[in-house]
Design a protein around this nucleic acid. Structure first.
Lengths: 232, 232
DNA sequence: CATAGACAAATCCTATAGGAATGGTCCTTG
DNA sequence: CAAGGACCATTCCTATAGGATTTGTCTATG
């Protein structure tokens, strides 16, 4: 694979305000979300550099950033590995944390939401409805992306940079939730209905109702996942 | 300044499982917390490398990690700068986020706290009582360190890795709170009493009481800071 | 005097090279 | 056959060098 370097761009074109490390970061993130990098797999710095046809330096910088998201772990002098699969306990902890953070985001967002913000949320829900939901990951990738986007939009529109940071600290982990047991999407209809309920609560302008709708959604996601999860 | 390199260690000594980038990270963090790097100041990669007598490569990796904590910001092709000072709005947002997260941490920690954990917390409160509280930053550095340690211990003992991650996402920012207006420590007696109240609630074993004590503490910190803050 | 352009220094960004550590394999030895 | 040590390939880690970009200054011009 060959990433676009800032060196070989046409002289007249506007300067790409992105450096190679940013491209590498995005590419690795895509690999992680695509499942191309499986949990526990080693991520070689030199190997990735060869794969992407760049030098190890930007790869090293990109991995240093990824480490802080929890998607990869680093052991000094041994390299980076993709974070291991979720256990049942990990999942329970994640849902506990989401319950603490996301309803607050919904409440804050409700009192300052703009028509544009509502439109974005509606778009995310619409994408959720129309996204294909096949059995393999590539087939419900768009579904998960729309789901993640919905929740992130609410965090952004809370207007609180720290709540967004707190959500983001979970957000990278939320992606890994798909690995929990490897179950597919079996609850799409119910999840979509819950998202619509959150959306309507936000549109209604009642902060407490928005918080309650979000809490209800997270509660039900947890309950369904526990029911679906394979036994240990 | 000369950092200890893995190269010039005695052959017999146990291997230092830390690489240069880790030392640079710790050193930069100390600079930030010491106030040696002021908000808005540029952090030159090459300059820092010369200062620490290392090559720019580990400095680059350390800064990439620091960026994710919010302590420094990066602009492509322009370098890193220390994050700007807190505004009144930033502070209000931070307290809002702490109110969402820290009482939950206290509640979770309460139901699973160990005697060792309680002892650690008692130690932090004791350090808080005995720390000097002079007007300049160096003189109340230990006080702030003990304060931060108390809250971080509770986050750790929540037993929830994601709540800890969420708190940490704020934690780096909490340090910057000291820059808010540059006011010194004027509320030590009250703050210590509130910490003791949280400690006693945790020791009592009543999760809701622990959450309430923590919420009360954060509320009062906010109220006092707003009262102390200089006018815009 | 104000403004635009050119030059120079500092800095960032990437590539390359080599030392150092790790992990696995093979061989030797009890 | 099992256990321990040596060797080698792979990979990480750091230093160095040079191209690319930004920024400040200086000069010339309207």
């Amino acid at each position: 694979m060959k990433l676009a370097s800032s060196r070989d761009r046409a002289p007249g074109r506007p300067v790409s305000r992105q450096v190679l490390a940013d491209h590498v970061y995005e590419e690795l993130l895509a690999w992680l979300m695509d499942g191309r990098l499986e949990p526990g797999a080693a991520v070689s710095i030199d190997g990735t550099a060869r794969e992407l046809d760049v030098s190890p330096t930007p790869v090293r910088e990109a991995l240093a950033r990824l480490e802080h998201t929890g998607m990869v772990r680093r052991v000094a002098l041994k390299g980076y590995r993709v974070a291991p699969v979720f256990t049942r306990e990990d999942f329970a902890e994640l849902m506990e944390a989401r319950l603490a953070i996301e309803p607050v985001n919904a409440r804050l967002a409700c009192s300052r939401i703009t028509p544009e913000g509502l439109a974005d949320l509606r778009g995310a829900v619409k994408d959720l409805e129309t996204a294909p939901r096949g059995p393999s990951f590539m087939e419900f990738r768009d579904y998960l992306e729309a789901d993640e986007r919905f929740h992130k939009l609410i965090a952004e529109q809370s207007g609180n940079q720290f709540m967004l940071a707190a959500y983001t600290a979970l957000g990278g982990q939320v992606q890994r939730f798909r690995l929990f047991g490897g179950v597919g999407i079996t609850d799409a209809e119910q999840a979509i209905a819950e998202h619509q309920a959150v959306l309507e609560a936000l549109a209604s302008g009642d902060p407490e109702q928005a918080a309650a709708a979000m809490a209800d959604h997270v509660h039900k996601v947890r309950a369904r996942a526990i029911a679906d999860a394979p036994a240990d």
